[in-house]
Simulated scan of single mutants.
Amino acid sequence: MAAIRLVHVSDTHLSDTHGYFAANWAAFRDAMAAAPPDLLVHGGDLSFNGPAAEGDLAFGAAELARLGVAWRAIAGNHDVGEAPDFSRLDQPVNAARLAAWRRHVGPHWWSQDLGDWRLVGLDTALMGSGLAEEAAQAAFLAETLAGRQGRPVMVFVHMPPFDRDVTDAGPSTSVMPHRARGAFLDACAAGGVKVIACGHLHVYRRMRHRGMAIVWAPPTAMVDVRRWQGRLRRFPRPGYVEWTLDGPSATHRLVEPPRMFVIDMSGWTATHGGTTTTLPPLAPL
C-alpha cells in the first residue's frame, strides 16, 4: 500500500467579518490545491470567535469544504468555549455552543481508520467541564482504543496535555486541566496511542511522553514572537504539519509556506488588555 499523506492544520481563526488571517489561509489553500493530501485534519480554533459569532463557524466550515479534500475537524476554545472553571475568555462551553459546532462542522469526537492507523478526534473543551458530554467522550475513547485490533493510534486534541511538567496541577488555559489530564494520558498510553497531535499555543514543538510522540502544530494565524523566542530560542512562524503514514510507521515534517506572513497580535492584546477576539471588524481581502 502506498504511503498516506495527512495534513494537520490548526488555529486558523477564520471569519468573514474579522479577516486578519485571510492571506495566510489563502496560502494554505493554494498549497492544498497544489498537492492535495489524502486527509486533512483541522485541529481546532477553526473560527475567529465561534462562541460569540456562529457565523464564524459557518464561514470556517465553508472554507474547509472549499479546499476540495477529505477533512475532519475537532473543536477549539475559539469554536465552542472553554471548560467553565478555566474560561479565560468568559465563554464557558455550553449546550448551545456545542450544538452550533455540530450544526456547522461535525461531531465533537470521532474515529477513522486510515491505512494501518486509527485516527481519533476529541474535544478538549469538554475535559474538566463536568458536562455529561465529558463522560460520554471518555467512554468513547475507551471503547475506540479497546477495539483498535492492534492498530497504532493517532489522537488529535486542541489543547496540549501539558507544557513542561505533567504533574503541574495549577489552573491553566494553555493545557488540559490537571484533573482530566491524567486519565487521558493513562488511556492513551495503555491503548496503543503512538502520536498525540495538538495545537492551541500557536507554535510548533515536539516532545515524548511514555513512549508517545506529542507534536504541536503551528497556527496559520497569529504567533507571539517574543514569548516563543524567549522560551524555545527560535522564531515562531505560521504553517502546518504534514504526516506520512507508511504501514505502522508515522513521520512528520513542519511546513512553513514562504507566502505565509508572520502576524503578531501581542501588541494589541497588551495595549488593550484583551485578546484577539476584541479586534475591530476587518473584511477579508
Results as ranks from 00 to 15, higher is better:
94 N>P: 01
228 W>F: 12
280 P>L: 13
119 L>W: 13
67 L>G: 14
33 A>Q: 15
45 D>Y: 04
85 D>I: 08
44 G>H: 04
54 E>V: 03
205 R>L: 10
86 F>V: 03
93 V>F: 04
168 D>W: 02
151 R>L: 02
156 F>C: 02
229 Q>L: 15
147 G>S: 15
17 T>H: 02
115 G>I: 00
264 D>M: 05
45 D>V: 01
117 W>C: 12
204 Y>G: 05
261 F>Q: 10
242 E>A: 12
241 V>H: 06
126 L>C: 06
54 E>W: 13
78 H>A: 09
186 D>Y: 01
100 A>T: 02
202 H>I: 02
284 P>Y: 05
156 F>D: 01
125 A>S: 15
247 G>I: 07
89 L>G: 00
255 V>M: 10
46 L>S: 06
22 A>Q: 13
12 T>L: 12
234 R>F: 12
71 W>G: 04
34 A>E: 08
157 V>C: 01
3 A>K: 07
247 G>V: 11
247 G>W: 11
121 G>E: 00
76 G>R: 11
116 D>A: 15
137 Q>H: 10
89 L>R: 11
175 V>T: 15
161 P>F: 09
117 W>S: 13
267 G>A: 15
282 L>E: 03
48 F>L: 08
198 C>D: 05
188 C>H: 03
79 D>H: 11
196 I>E: 03
109 W>I: 03
3 A>L: 04
35 A>Y: 04
40 L>Y: 02
187 A>H: 06
257 P>G: 11
65 A>M: 02
240 Y>I: 05
132 A>D: 14
52 A>C: 05
124 T>K: 12
233 R>C: 13
157 V>L: 05
280 P>M: 15
193 V>S: 00
279 L>E: 08
119 L>Y: 13
168 D>H: 11
28 F>V: 12
197 A>Y: 00
243 W>Q: 07
223 V>S: 14
257 P>V: 12
33 A>T: 10
70 A>R: 15
137 Q>L: 03
190 A>T: 02
6 L>S: 05
